[in-house]
């Protein structure tokens, strides 16, 4: 005779009611976890749409296109001794719509930009219109490190050690004709390398311009590097304009064309929204953007706000350029 295992005493059996309640409880717990994950996940996905954690910047190593280039001492009174904005902030907080609309997009997408070989086309009112190789141009000038404040029209600012040469030195070398009144600079037009150009948020390519006296001012820089090395793509490699007393959008990036012209050139943001972005775009705490105040700024890396200085502190050098101009009207 086979022995059947002994059944547990009835006192140890789980009552059917409890047993069913446990199953119900497990089901409800499962539904709770599932539903909260779906809803919470959807919210987080909407938040992260293209702008999750800041991208890791590759701290550049290895050979640098600027290695071995001659260096020169910059004019002493141009530099600021305010603390420099850290490299990873300068390279992950960029407005470069051609590489994406969000601040962290350009750092993510800059890999598509090929910065060598690079041709700069020079033309218009100058002695000899031609195409120049960027490395040939770099051979003409010693590079200077300039530590400049940069003020964005969106009311934030940074302190950036640029590496470059004065735009004025290049313009002079190109021998302007007597009719040259403006310098017009244009960004590369190539949606393969600058995929944001497939999106018509702005009329591409990006164009900026300066009056001749602004372009010749010794503060005005054509930058090819920052923090001692070649510019990262997101900062406008390989050649960009830096005009420290103006809002950052004047600083046209990845320049492929320089033209000296007689007529007032159309510039991108000014054309897109003339009542919001003036041609001059001088930093001016007294003239607000129609939608926000320009009286103060947030220095990236600091908490709180600091008051914005006229021409963001470069008034002693450049206010004279605008002595006969009503800066409220010509903002």
């Amino acid at each position: 005779m086979k022995l059947r295992p002994k059944e547990p005493p009835s006192s140890e059996l789980t009552p059917e009611k409890l047993y069913l309640r446990r199953r119900e409880w497990l089901k409800q717990a499962g539904l709770f976890v599932g539903a909260s994950a779906v809803w919470g996940g959807s919210l987080v996905a909407l938040m992260n749409r293209g702008a999750a954690d800041p991208p890791d910047v590759e701290v550049p190593v290895g050979p640098d296109p600027l290695a071995g280039r001659a260096r020169a001492e910059p004019p002493a009174d141009f530099d600021t001794d305010e603390p420099r904005t850290p490299f990873e902030k300068v390279t992950t907080h960029n407005n470069y719509y051609e590489l994406g609309l969000r601040k962290t997009d350009p750092a993510r997408h800059a890999g598509s930009l090929r910065t060598r070989p690079w041709t700069l086309e020079v033309g218009g009112e100058l002695a000899r219109p031609r195409r120049l190789d960027l490395d040939e141009v770099l051979g003409w000038f010693a590079l200077e490190e300039r530590v400049y404040r940069m003020r964005c029209v969106e009311a934030w600012s940074m302190v950036i050690p640029w590496l470059g040469f004065p735009l004025g030195a290049l313009v002079k070398r190109l021998e302007p004709t007597s009719r040259a009144r403006y310098v017009e600079l244009t960004t590369l037009m190539d949606p393969e390398q600058l995929p944001g150009q497939r999106d018509d948020v702005l009329p591409w390519p990006y164009v900026e311009a300066l009056r001749m006296d602004e372009a010749m001012h010794p503060l005005t820089l054509l930058a090819v590097g920052l923090y001692g090395r070649a510019l990262p793509g997101q900062n406008g490699a390989p050649l960009r304009l830096v005009v420290p007393w103006k809002y950052g959008f004047k600083g046209v990036k990845s320049i492929v064309r320089l033209r000296l012209v007689e007529e007032w050139p159309r510039t991108t943001w000014n054309e897109a929204a003339p009542d919001e972005y003036g041609f001059y775009a001088n930093v001016n705490p007294a003239v607000d953007h129609p939608r926000w105040s320009q009286a103060s700024e947030r220095r990236i890396g600091e908490s709180g706000r600091r008051p914005t200085l006229p021409f963001i502190g470069y008034a002693e050098h450049v206010a004279g350029l605008y002595a006969d101009l009503d800066l409220r009207r010509h903002f």
């Binding site: 709770f32 539903a35 909260s36 809803w39 919470g40 938040m47």
Partner: peptide
């Protein structure tokens, strides 16, 4: 009865 607590929990995620 699981629904409202789940919405609360999910809404706390951000």
């Amino acid at each position: 009865s699981w629904l409202e607590p789940a919405v609360v929990a999910g809404s706390l995620a951000p």
